[in-house]
Computed example of a mutant assay.
Amino acid sequence: MSLSPRALVVFADPALHRSRISRRVGEAARSLSHVVVQDLYELYPDLYIDVGRERTLLKEADLVVFAFQLSWYAMPALLKEWFDTVFKPEWAEPGAQARLAGKSCWAAVGCASQPGDYQPGARHGRPLAEYLAPLEQTARACGMRWIDPHVFYGADGADAQTVDAHAEQLRALLAGHLARLAREGVAHGA
Rank of each mutant, 00 (worst) to 15 (best):
C142T: 05
A122T: 11
L135H: 01
E168P: 14
R140H: 09
A158Y: 03
L100I: 03
A96D: 13
M144P: 02
D117C: 05
R145K: 13
F83P: 02
G102D: 15
A77F: 05
A98V: 09
Q137P: 05
L79V: 15
V109H: 00
V151G: 01
C105A: 15
T85Q: 09
P134E: 01
G110H: 13
Y73A: 04
D84A: 10
A160T: 12
V109D: 00
P127M: 15
F68S: 11
H150M: 09
G157Y: 07
K80H: 12
P120S: 14
H150W: 01
L132I: 06
L128S: 12
A165E: 11
R123F: 09
P127F: 11
V86S: 11
A96L: 14
Q169S: 12
G116S: 11
H150D: 15
F68R: 00
L100W: 14
A107P: 13
R126D: 06
D117I: 06
G125D: 06
D156Y: 08
F66D: 04
G185F: 15
A101P: 08
A158W: 08
L181W: 01
T138P: 15
S113F: 03
L135V: 09
F152Y: 04
A179S: 08
G157R: 02
Q169H: 05
A67W: 00
A167G: 05
H166F: 13
E136T: 10
A122C: 06
F87T: 05
A182N: 03
S71Q: 05
S104H: 08
S71T: 00
P94C: 07
P94G: 04
W72I: 04
D84L: 08
A77V: 10
A167Q: 15
C105N: 12
A133M: 07
A96E: 11
E184L: 06
A172Y: 00
A74N: 05
G110N: 13
A67Y: 00
Y153V: 01
A107D: 04
F68D: 02
A101H: 04
A179K: 14
A67M: 07
G143K: 13
Q161L: 06
H166L: 02
W146T: 10
G125A: 04
D159W: 01
Q169A: 13
Y118H: 09
Y153Q: 00
P127Y: 01
A158E: 03
R99K: 03
D159N: 14
A108S: 11
A167R: 08
W91F: 07
Q97M: 08
D117V: 02
L132Y: 02
L178N: 02
P115G: 10
K103I: 00
F66I: 04
C105E: 15
S104K: 12
P89T: 02
A141F: 14
T162S: 08
